[in-house]
Amino acid sequence: MTIPPIPSAAYLIVGAMLFIIGAVGVLTRRNGIVVFMSIELMLNSVNLSLITFSHFLNSMDGVLFVFFVMAVAAAEAGVGLAIFVQLYRTQKTIHLDEVHLMRW
């Protein structure tokens, strides 16, 4: 009896579950930093799906896409955390319900 190799659907299910957990984190948590980390988790799960398709379709395009996603995530982390530091300086909180300067 031979055991089948790991199908692409298995990796995609893991990616989908991580994405859903990240989405739930963004929508339910009110701490700015935790929301930010949940967004990073969602980006990472998309990377997993891209690498899976790239592996099973014998293509390198997905790998290059992951490369660019990581660059965008690094830029986002730098600017986003600078915004949180500045927000904490002026508002003394990063609780997202109490930050409503730009909300009418």
């Binding site: 995609l12 899976t52 379709l57 293509s59």
Partner: peptide, 13 residues
Amino acid sequence: AVFGGARGAIGEY
């Protein structure tokens, strides 16, 4: 989407 599987043109790598 997942159970559709990986569909598309097969690349060279």
